[in-house]
Nucleic acid binder design. Structure first.
Lengths: 268, 268
DNA sequence: AAGTGGTCTAGACCACATC
DNA sequence: ATGTGGTCTAGACCACTTG
């Protein structure tokens, strides 16, 4: 960015306050990859000078981006682009066994298939109706006990590196476990946390997610995977995960025993 | 507050930044009733002078209180103590019929009784185990259709004005509707929104609430009230409502059809 | 016109992290 | 010792609301 347009931030965003326009401009620089997730932005003084604003204004803009979850500030160290969502966030909706808070459940990929995405997934991911995508079927366990069943849809455009090779169809069909046939790029040792894995293997950084909670009952195959009875009540969490640019990069549906569900919300 | 201690805010809260200590001091002044909910605080200049700080510091303190939901600032008008929670907030967890967003469901008090509070309610309200409290049983309806069943527990110390007179027992027993016997202080025309009613009738301002969501099944009496089958799955929302001072003034448990439940959470 | 909160500036000084 | 973000100040000016 040259000096000539360094001072044009406000003109680029008419109607916005200077700090808000500056925040938008800084967000653009992050989205365009000028500063990668996990790395530091220039110091306040440098950024303020570069954009021709007072320190206070620059700080106000950064505060906005912190609120939005884009960056993170650490006293004495610097301002960093957030690496994205890390922990086992699905677990915040459930209470399983003695599971200690912050614990990461084990992960077992039951199936990995390329097939036509259902309408809702296609819409969320911006795919054409009927277009194929990568689907993971995953079981999560705590102390060896199955607790969550996930169906994860990923666009091939971004996650081709994770797709099974050739025309492999990895024993699928609606929810059955087992049938872990030999697969050239094995998924048996994938890590329990997918988002850091997406980042390292595909360069996709999940930075925000929207979880939609509902209620339903388990189909027979789903119930088998979770060790419950068919028709058992379950909580259904539908998630859309977005990258830095706000594009939806993952659509996921997670099911778990309704009786283990709990969530707390504060209202002011 | 005299001038002598006006400058002692920081000393009163060692380890806190000046703006944080100031915010705590201002919060105290609100809690003590110096400025009532709905009324305006003095202007920035006046408050800053009164506490012997710069305008920027005073503004920082007020920003904190805004984040905490204690006050509200309106450009050109002033800074106001928030009146409390108003709308039909329970409805944000459910999708009923054609119910327009922001619509307030009708309210029908099924029973109003003074009886021993269950352990969980007593603990939340700070009552001795087995101590009596006022219990409201309330049905909420949209377009005449029952949708939510609520059991509301209120401490008599604060809500004596709402209790039935004498030893009246207003047809109760676990969940039955009907039996609306003649009651001296009728509850049949109570408004659909209870919190403003609490404020006007009892001087209790609900300023914050914590909702805990879970799933369960309906007992036979509960199911009758809602027009569903016994054993039907239901969402269970347990609420603790707090006043300005942070004291829990209402404990409530709300049940509604689990299939109508939905909630959306954003994760960053 | 007067009073309110919102924005922006310029600079001093403090607290934390690292070498 | 140096570099980073956090606090605090003092003042100018802008934008919104009300009479």
């Amino acid at each position: 960015m040259q000096l000539s347009d360094a001072h044009a931030v406000v003109a680029d965003h008419p109607g916005l306050a200077r700090y808000a326009a500056l925040a938008a401009a800084l967000r653009q620089r992050v989205v365009r990859g000028e500063w990668l997730p996990g790395t530091a932005l220039p110091a306040e003084q440098a950024l303020a000078a570069e954009h021709g604003v007072a320190l206070g204004t620059l700080r106000r803009a950064l505060e906005l981006l912190v609120e939005q979850g884009l960056i993170e500030r650490i006293h004495g160290k610097g301002t960093f682009v957030r690496s994205g969502i890390a922990g086992a966030s699905m677990l915040r909706f459930f209470r399983f066994g003695e599971g200690v808070a912050g614990q990461v459940p084990d992960s077992r990929i039951l199936a990995r298939t390329v097939l036509a995405a259902p309408a809702e997934a296609a819409r969320a991911l911006g795919l054409a109706p009927g277009e194929v995508a990568l689907r993971l079927q995953r079981l999560r366990l705590i102390d060896g006990e199955p607790c969550l069943l996930e169906h994860i849809w990923l666009p091939l455009e971004l996650f081709g590196a994770l797709a099974p090779q050739g025309g492999d169809r990895d024993g699928d069909g609606g929810g059955e476990a087992g049938s872990a046939a030999a697969d050239s790029s094995a998924h048996h040792d994938w890590p329990a946390l997918l988002y850091p894995f997406y980042a390292s293997r595909c360069g996709v950084h999940v930075q925000r997610a929207v979880d939609d909670i509902g209620f339903g009952t388990l189909t027979a195959p789903q119930a088998r995977s979770l060790g419950l009875a068919a028709g058992h009540p379950c909580a259904v969490v539908t998630r859309r995960a977005m990258d830095l640019a706000g594009r939806c990069v993952e659509w996921r549906i997670t099911r778990g025993d309704a009786h283990a569900f709990h969530y707390s919300v504060t209202l002011t």
